[in-house]
Design a protein around this nucleic acid. Structure first.
Lengths: 198, 198
DNA sequence: CACTTATTGCAACTAGTGTTGTAAAATAGA
DNA sequence: TCTATTTTACAACACTAGTTGCAATAAGTG
């Protein structure tokens, strides 16, 4: 019995997500979102609340997107899955692809100075997505110390995102990816948890 | 024949550096610097110019500091030097230590949205510091593909800094460091440039 | 057709920040 | 002691961005 909204929430979140991904949190102004989406400031504020909350909704949406991708790529987790994942990370992208700016979550870690508890939790959950698929993949190939190695892989991944963010070019992470892949191949043969002879 | 400055430039740059390191670029306001250092805004502007230029001076100072440290640690470059370096990165720090916030340069890569050409160049030079010592270290132990592996190590390092920045605790990078060290030990035995048998 | 209710557009308000002008203060040298 | 010259303190300016109030508008529903 009232006027319906003139825009679709999910669709708008996608658009806003690209803006935050491309320009970062503080450079993406509320008024800028207005002109990009065509939705007035007042409607945005009515629907999502203040900027923090809109951003949080965007992060949740981003995490959902990545989660679905990971479910596909790691449907049967294995070292090969990880290899494919790292090769995809450093694959080329055109000028419109927001992947040129790395990872929205990693960018947020650095840009938002005093993150809300909700933002911190969102990032932790995001990190755990990778932790889980990496660990399961390593376990399925009987690699020793899967938790520690999963943390290492997350580190290498975030380093790759840093490199991409610096150069605005995913292919600049190829050296990192290639050595990660080489290391994964070595791990395949690591039945006893110690290093080969020097 | 004129009034001398009431503060020491280098000393002030050190103080300001810690502020930028701790709180980031935009959260460190010109007025905040005034109250931290006791030096008036007008004097700061007279001496260093606008905020960009002050920040650039801080970055240069930071790079000089790191460069001197690296010269010491890699005086005779070797794999052992890299191992010691990664172990130091993830060593504990007290609450006052700005190392809790990771690396000022990496933070800058993410925080400053449209970096000046001068800032970009500063970051590139900083990155080359590590590139060089890593490469020389790998070469001295005859590890194959030293350039690519140096890039990988920079990636792992930046991933470690990301992790530290996320948790505000250097020891959270220990898993990353430990696997990097393990990988370095493996590289020692890599005389032919290919992987061991699976 | 009227009425209720949420949405929307406009504009104002507030807070914070970089920057700059001006005049007073201070110091080294003549 | 006087003077030239720089530093310094204070304050104002300009601009940006998040937030909010209010009235007009539009769409379901009886």
């Amino acid at each position: 019995m009232a006027r319906p909204r003139s825009f679709d929430e999910q669709e708008l979140l996608e658009t806003v997500m690209k803006a935050f991904w491309r320009r970062g949190y503080s450079a993406t102004t509320y008024r800028g979102i207005e002109s990009i989406t065509g939705v007035g400031i007042r409607s945005l504020a009515n629907t999502f609340g203040e900027k923090d909350e809109l951003f949080l909704a965007v992060l949740a949406s981003y995490r959902g997107r990545v989660s679905r991708n990971l479910d596909l790529m790691f449907e049967s987790p294995s070292i090969d899955s990880i290899v494919r994942f790292f090769e995809r990370i450093s694959s080329p992208s055109d000028a419109e692809d927001p992947r040129r700016n790395g990872c929205l979550m990693v960018n947020t870690v650095f840009e938002v100075d005093k993150p809300t508890a909700a933002v911190t939790q969102e990032i932790a959950q995001y990190r755990d997505l990778f932790r889980r698929v990496f660990r399961e993949s390593l376990e399925s190939d009987q690699v020793p110390d899967p938790e520690i190695r999963a943390d290492f892989l997350i580190g290498a991944l975030w380093g790759a995102f840093s490199q991409i963010r610096l150069t605005r070019d995913p292919t600049s992470a190829k050296p990192i990816s290639s050595i990660v892949v080489e290391t994964l191949e070595i791990w395949r043969g690591l039945v006893p948890p110690r290093r080969p002879a020097a």
